[in-house]
Computed example of a mutant assay.
Amino acid sequence: MTKKDILTPIGITVGFMMIIFAISTSGGVGEVVIFLDVPSIFIVLGGVIGSLLINFKLEQIKLTGRVLKESFVKTEDRLPEMIELFIRLSERARREGILALENELDEVEDPFIKKGIMLAVDGIEPEVITDIMDAEITAMEERHYKGRTIIEKAGEYAPAWGMIGTLVGLVLMLNQLSDPATLGPAMAIALITTLYGTVLANLVFIPMASKLEAKTEEEVFLKQIIIEGIIGVQSGQNPRILEEKLSAFISHTDKRKYEEMKEKEEEAARSGFVEDRVNEA
């Protein structure tokens, strides 16, 4: 399950607001207008887009929007629910046999877990299951890397195009040396493109790429835990031992959440048991 990650837009907004605040407190609110230059924006953004078009295939460029969107969403932590699922699968496999897990597939939403259960039900060797699922993790990492590379390259190109814009401005400035009054404003405009490129790189593109990399690492970690759970269920591991093994991967906060979830389920089970006894009486 995913929901909006408000930290990304908040971080970008805070960064731009601090720059505007620094400008306005140093030279007044009216000075902010000086830093708005349309030609400089076109040089930096146009140059970055042109470089990306040269560097990447069209299929990869089309993924840019989806990749950027991933920076603004976050996946809820599913570890406690996932551990509970594996405990239930383990209990049923020990009680009814591994083939009984086929009936659980409709209730499993995660395709990676579902694939692992299907392999286990088919009687595939644990080593082969691990190899197959590790290969899928590797493929996922490669897909994420290709998408993330576009953002990383944009972060590399933006400062360079900012410098190019500055050089263009300096050439135009030197061409007007006959009028000394225009040198100051021309120099200021020439430097704005460097500012644009540096801000875009260090406030937008590079932080987004780093967040995407962190999300990939989290997903890989989660899938490794899933593999451990699948192998534990297939090997007929004691549910309590499997629970302790998988719980070692989660943080103290998640452990508390998992324990609270178990207490609620046990309380609901006790309530149902008492209600059944009362109805029988």
Results as ranks from 00 to 15, higher is better:
Asp254His: 11
Lys211Asn: 12
Gly116Trp: 01
Glu84Cys: 02
Thr8Asn: 08
Lys153Gln: 14
Ile231Val: 15
Ala188Tyr: 03
Glu96Thr: 04
Ile225Arg: 08
Ser71His: 01
Met17Arg: 02
Asn279His: 12
Asn55Tyr: 10
Glu81Tyr: 05
Ala100Tyr: 02
Gly162Ser: 04
Gln60Ser: 14
Lys57Tyr: 04
Ile61Ala: 06
Ser51Glu: 06
Val29Glu: 09
Tyr258Gln: 11
Ala160Lys: 10
Gly27Phe: 05
Arg143Thr: 09
Lys245Trp: 07
Arg88Ser: 13
Thr166Pro: 08
Ser24Ala: 15
Phe42Pro: 03
Glu266Lys: 13
Ile43Leu: 03
Gly65Pro: 07
Ile230Asn: 00
Val121Phe: 00
Thr138His: 11
Val274Trp: 10
Ile150Ser: 04
Glu280His: 13
Val168Phe: 15
Gly27Asn: 12
Arg66Ala: 15
Lys74Cys: 10
Leu85Ala: 03
Leu174Gln: 09
Phe205Thr: 04
Phe35Thr: 01
Glu266Thr: 07
Gly47Cys: 04
Phe273Pro: 01
Phe35Ser: 01
Met18Phe: 14
Phe72Tyr: 11
Thr194Asp: 02
Ser178Ile: 06
Asp106Leu: 03
Asp254Ala: 15
Lys257Gly: 12
Ile137Cys: 01
Gln234Glu: 13
Ala154Arg: 02
Ile225Asp: 04
Ala186Leu: 13
Asp106Asn: 10
Val199Lys: 05
Glu265Ile: 10
Leu58Trp: 13
Val29Leu: 15
Phe16Glu: 05
Ser271Cys: 01
Val29Phe: 15
Met140Arg: 03
Glu265Met: 12
Lys211Phe: 03
Glu265Asp: 12
Leu63Arg: 15
Leu99Glu: 00
Arg78Gly: 12
Ala269Leu: 14
Leu53His: 05
Gln176Ala: 15
Met118Val: 11
Thr25Gly: 02
Lys257Val: 07
Glu91Ala: 11
Leu177Pro: 09
Pro9Asn: 07
Ala120Pro: 07
Pro180Asn: 07
Leu170Cys: 10
Gly123Gln: 01
Met17Trp: 12
Pro126Glu: 10
Ala120Cys: 10
Arg143Phe: 04
Leu195Trp: 06
Thr25Ala: 09
Glu84His: 11
Met163Cys: 09
Leu167Lys: 01
Lys62Val: 06
